[in-house]
Amino acid sequence: MPGPKDLDPSSSPRALLGAELRHAREKAGLSQEELGLRLFVSGSFIGQLEAGTRRMQREYARLLDEVLGTDDFFQRNCGAAAKSRYPEHFAEAAEAEALATEIRQYAPMLIPGLLQTPAYARAVNRAYAPTASKEIIDEWVDGRMERTRLLDDPTKPLLWVVLDEAVVRRETGGRAVMTEALRHVAALVRRSRVIVQVLPFSAGAHKAMEGSMRLMDFEDAPPLVYFEGPSTGRLEDDPATVAQLRYTFELLTASALSPQKSLALIEAVAQDYAHEDLP
């Protein structure tokens, strides 16, 4: 597997930990696979820690200090690297997302966070937490909008999304919110910033009916897949699992409408929402 790139230790606590971990591992004369064996994890997991695509948990920090003889360096610093404005179950995935070169996502229920408008994000978060204060909702929306800045770069990351038709048809936040949200997605497509396909109801049963998934590829680290459910989430790096989910995504794209027909559907539904006199 490719070696990790040189990281700027001043860029973030996680970059510092990654650079220091690589330095300590190489000083100890261990490969990523050898160090992984001592921690009961894969060599690719060590590579992801070094590349900054995985968060260093306290239990691993303790073991690294013991195995590499680094006193309590990793234990003292993993707390700073773990701070995040995102919910605990999603924080690691959001941080990995920011480093990904390619993201492929199937969304069965809602517009993915990277494609959301503030109003749509507010409606979704209010539905998630109907009793939360306005300040809390504002904080969550700000965090989600911060994630969308990934798309400010004209080419990176590659983002390819398959939306279930239910995403387009489910009126979230009202007609005006849906009009804006769908037109925003269409605008990103027309700028050639994202690839979006709609999986129509007419496609019938399909391989991803059990839930959403997000595949992430990186320049210098193994790929990851993220599974998400109500207030839960899990990152997986098992090569067999990642390969199986990549195959699933390919099947979805084969069953979905073409990008051109998907864009036409999205814009047509947005137009329907814009006319309040339509049912």
Rank of each mutant, 00 (worst) to 15 (best):
G43N: 05
Y60H: 15
P200F: 00
L21A: 06
A61R: 04
T70R: 08
K156L: 06
A221H: 02
A15G: 05
G43L: 13
A186V: 00
A274G: 12
F227K: 09
D217P: 00
R169D: 04
A203C: 08
V161S: 10
Y60E: 00
L49A: 05
L199I: 02
G47D: 06
D72E: 14
A274L: 08
L115V: 02
L7I: 04
A119S: 11
D6L: 13
Q105W: 07
F74G: 07
T131G: 02
K134R: 15
L278D: 03
P154Y: 07
P259E: 01
H275G: 08
C78D: 08
H206A: 03
C78W: 05
F227L: 15
T248Q: 15
L251G: 15
E139W: 08
L99M: 11
D65F: 07
G211Y: 05
L30G: 01
P13W: 01
G18N: 04
V124S: 03
P259Q: 00
T70P: 09
D153E: 13
L245K: 06
E20H: 06
F201G: 04
A28N: 13
V161A: 06
R85K: 14
R193H: 09
V242F: 05
W160I: 14
E210H: 12
A94E: 13
E267I: 11
V67R: 01
A51D: 04
A176P: 03
I103Q: 03
P2S: 13
D272G: 11
S84K: 03
P239I: 09
A127D: 09
D72H: 11
M216N: 12
R55L: 06
E276N: 15
I103C: 08
S11H: 15
L199P: 03
Q48E: 05
R62H: 11
R183T: 09
L7H: 10
R14Y: 02
A123K: 00
L252V: 11
K5Y: 08
T117C: 07
L63D: 07
D6C: 12
I136M: 12
S202Y: 02
A19L: 08
A61Y: 04
D217N: 08
G233N: 02
E219G: 04
E34M: 09
D71I: 01
R38K: 15
P13Q: 07
S202V: 03
D153S: 12
T131D: 12
F249A: 15
N77L: 07
R76D: 14
S255Q: 13
P154H: 10
L17I: 05
Q105F: 06
H206V: 03
P230R: 00
Y247D: 13
M145S: 03
L265C: 00
P2N: 14
I46G: 07
A61H: 01
L158S: 13
G52L: 10
D237Y: 08
Y128W: 15
V269K: 09
